[in-house]
Design a protein around this nucleic acid. Sequence first.
DNA 1: GGCGGAACTGTAAGCGCTTACATTTACCGA
DNA 2: TCGGTAAATGTAAGCGCTTACAGTTCCGCC
Lengths: 378, 378
Amino acid sequence: MQGLTWWLCNFRVCEVLFFENQKDRRVLVTLTNNTLPTLEDVARVARVSTATVSRCLNRPGQVSDSTRDRVMRAVEELGYTPNFGARALAAKRTFTIGAITPTMENAIFARGLQAFQETLNEAGYTLLVSSTGYDPQREAEQIRNLVARGADGLLLIGYERDPDIYAFLEARKVPYLLSWAHRPEEKHPAVGFNNCKSMTELTKAVLAEGHREIGIISAQMEGNDRATDRVKGIRVGLHEAGLDPQRAPLVETPYSVENGANAFEEIMRSAPQTTAVMCVNDVLAVGAMNRAHDMGLDVPLDVSITGFDDIELAKLVKPKLTTVHVPHRLMGSLAAQQLMRFVEKTEAPQIRNLASIVEKRETLAKPRKNVDIDLVLR
Amino acid sequence: MQGLTWWLCNFRVCEVLFFENQKDRRVLVTLTNNTLPTLEDVARVARVSTATVSRCLNRPGQVSDSTRDRVMRAVEELGYTPNFGARALAAKRTFTIGAITPTMENAIFARGLQAFQETLNEAGYTLLVSSTGYDPQREAEQIRNLVARGADGLLLIGYERDPDIYAFLEARKVPYLLSWAHRPEEKHPAVGFNNCKSMTELTKAVLAEGHREIGIISAQMEGNDRATDRVKGIRVGLHEAGLDPQRAPLVETPYSVENGANAFEEIMRSAPQTTAVMCVNDVLAVGAMNRAHDMGLDVPLDVSITGFDDIELAKLVKPKLTTVHVPHRLMGSLAAQQLMRFVEKTEAPQIRNLASIVEKRETLAKPRKNVDIDLVLR
DNA sequence: GGCGGAACTGTAAGCGCTTACATTTACCGA
DNA sequence: TCGGTAAATGTAAGCGCTTACAGTTCCGCC
């Protein structure tokens, strides 16, 4: 029987004859090159035109009950699945939304995207995700790729990208929405939060504890407006407090725990008087905490450390990380709603600025006076 | 000028006349419904047939230099991007690989997939990812979806799924590869590791420390062969050591830190004599560690805890988590290679079993004798 | 019985691309 | 100069689907 099944794979059911007597049901078969069954095959089996089959699948209400039954049975029989490309070609609509993220390895994006996808799925859309590895070149490719694939709309992370890309999207009239960032001065449709302002809030909290010597660890700022704005936010905070932002040591390094650790050591060696190190995200901050521990520095007694994003990890490390909480799931799901509305009504979505809040936890405290940091550094 | 550009969007360049004198270059334009430019538009502008344009794009060697220049200039001029659906329809080939994961929020899958994608990209393939939320129903949908989208091949996680799905893939002759698991007795093409055996190894290490009262925290095992096999691995280890596997308390709970914590408490309350808790993944283990701490239990003095996967977090928590290291990136990239070979030669890939190794770190130690655990539990 | 209109179904023209095959052009040696 | 071959290009037939439009069927009612 196994053999027969296999053998039948090389045929295609061509016609099914139904008799009153259910037991006398014959199947006509033709030899084919064994490709997927098509609408036409279904039509043939159901003894209707391809148009009717198509209607059955897309607007079942327009078809009579008996016909629909017959067609559905044929669909079942053949295991028919519509060819997506052909459908998109003919209907000029794909019910697909594309999202392009810098990386999938970052919990931040993963969480927001998950929510984005869930909201999309509920409304019958499919999400296509691709990642760029923080490479603008690759981002441009992926955007073209998703547009070529017929994405009805696009979700992009952040503002900063070649104007040509925006021109391309504009010219093609592809609805797009930016996320994970919100800049009041920009006019692109966006659902995000104000990275700069959020960081200024956190900086105020740090300053309120009495810190005056603050170090900064950032992800690479080139082409990454989230990092840029967060650093800017710190500087604004310092400036407003009457401090010179340019004095604060800054280390830029790719996003990883290990790099955060190294950056921390670099700062503490070059500016031993530092009592607080602010990181533009939690992962770097956790790296900094680790290294602090290895160097024999107590957090927060010797040095306070802060992060940004409030990933799950922030609450798991000890001491618990002070950071900025961002409503990722809300953002994802709101973005999905706005983008779908945009796609369907060709009506620009409203720009949304979501609130973020400072999560003051254990890694931030008043600085211990007169630490002989040089001792620690051998 | 801005206005002009916008206005021009509603037209389509129809013909470009080149004169010797570069400055005298005129553009003929027609009013269109402002859709994407097509192959035909390019052909018209370049004054060649659509076949030639197609060849230019796909097999440039077959076209003379001068023609190719002209065509490429037209492509540039119009900002032409081939329509993916149409291309797939005509060529019956998409250079797209689909991957279906239970979730994107899990670092485990993210890391392996990233490597998978990188290897694919190098070879000119595009990866389409979609996630199921551990729902078999949704997985079936997504598989059909990706097949309908013309995926040349599919990457699936684990073995356990409705036989109908395998039948579907078999009948459609869609190359697929399983990953994140390897069962010697199964014949499906797979690149993964032996979850059961790996866990037995770890169990031996736990037993070697002198533990005899072992609790188990698992993700939900229904439809999840990774979890099933890991639990089985523990039981095999216990059995081989002459212990009764059925006596070990087991709590099944969805994958999350909080759930791990609750499960840990449940075990310790119902079986206070437990000296080691083995979790089927690191996230559950970290939750268990947290709750242990909250309950005033010292890890590993009062209770040892182990995980599985060796996610980044494992090295970041304190004490560091004893776990099983899995070569996720290697697995992803190997899977990509195998799958591409499968797709291209229609030749079944070899089944690969990757080595995993026990990472003995700080959460596993000899049990402290005679702990009065009841005291701790109020 | 016949008529009007609603409900259903069929016909066929594409959607944008690839490619087998036909045709043209270029180039070579006799 | 001319035939012959190879290289370049054009022609046109689909790929599998949707949908405008046309045709058919079926009612209810005069």
